[in-house]
Design a protein around this nucleic acid. Structure first.
Lengths: 120, 120
DNA sequence: CCGTATCCCAAGAGATACTG
DNA sequence: CAGTATCTCTTGGGATACGG
C-alpha cells in the first residue's frame, strides 16, 4: 500500500471516498462539470457560467457542486460583493487528474457518436 | 470479422454514445467491472468470476454487462458447452482506454480513503 | 453455470417558486 | 447572482424465484 520510495511525510490532502466518487461520477452533469473546470476553464469558474454551459437547473447544479465540494474535489470561494460572486476551482487531487482527464477527452472524441457533447 | 488487409479508411468500431456512457459510468458496479476486465484480468472474464469478485446480484450484473455490450465496450462470447461458459472481453475502443484507466487507478490509490476498493 | 422475470423500495433530477 | 425548498415522476437495484 505505501510507497517504499515515497516521502515519509503525512498526507496533506483530504482523502477521496471511492464509493461516493464512483456514484457521483455517473450522476447527471458531473462529468460535464469536471470537463468545464479542468479542460475548458482557465482559472476559477462561476456558478452562472456552468449553468449556461451545461443547461442544467440551478437546484441540480447546486447539489452536484456541493457533492463535489464535499468529496474534496472542488474548492468553493464566496466573495461578499454586490452582486454576489462564487467561484469554483479544482483542489490539488482533482488537478492531478487533469492529464488523465484529457486522455479521456481524446478517447471520447475518437469514439463518441456525436459532437463529443460533454453537456450530457 | 474485419479484414486484416482491408482499407484503413473506414471506421470498424461502433461509435460510443456519450450520454449513455456517462450515465452508465456511475451505475453500480460499472467501474468495478471495467477494472476487472481491463486491469485485473488477463484475457476474457467469465460471468462467475465477476460475480465473485464484485459481490453483486446476478440480475444487476447481467444488466450491467448487457449495457456495456450494447454500448459496444464489451464483447460477449457464449460457448455451447456443458456446463455453459460465457466470456467477456474488451472491444477495441475499450482496450484503447486501458492506459487512461491505469492512470485513474493510480489516482484512486493515491487519493482513495480506503483500500482502493473498486468493488463499490 | 449463466442467466431472466418480477416485485418493491429508494434515490435521482426536472419544474417551479422563492430568497439573501 | 447564486442559490434553496418542495413536489412529483422516473430510474435504479437488491431480493427472490425460476429457466436453458
Amino acid at each position: 500500500m505505501s510507497d517504499p520510495n515515497g516521502p515519509p511525510t503525512a498526507v496533506e490532502y483530504e482523502s477521496v471516498a471511492e464509493p461516493e466518487l464512483f456514484s457521483l461520477l455517473g450522476k447527471a452533469h458531473t462529468m460535464a462539470i469536471l470537463h468545464e473546470v479542468l479542460i475548458e476553464a482557465d482559472g476559477p469558474v462561476r456558478f452562472g457560467e456552468l449553468q449556461a454551459a451545461l443547461d442544467v437547473s440551478p437546484n441540480t447544479l447546486s447539489r452536484r457542486l456541493g457533492e463535489l465540494d464535499d468529496l474534496g474535489l472542488l474548492d468553493r470561494t464566496q466573495y461578499d460583493e454586490i452582486p454576489p460572486r462564487v467561484e469554483y476551482e479544482p483542489t490539488a487531487p482533482l488537478a492531478d487528474l487533469e492529464p488523465t482527464f484529457r486522455e479521456l477527452d481524446r478517447w471520447m472524441r475518437q469514439y463518441g457518436d456525436g459532437g463529443t457533447d460533454w453537456t450530457a
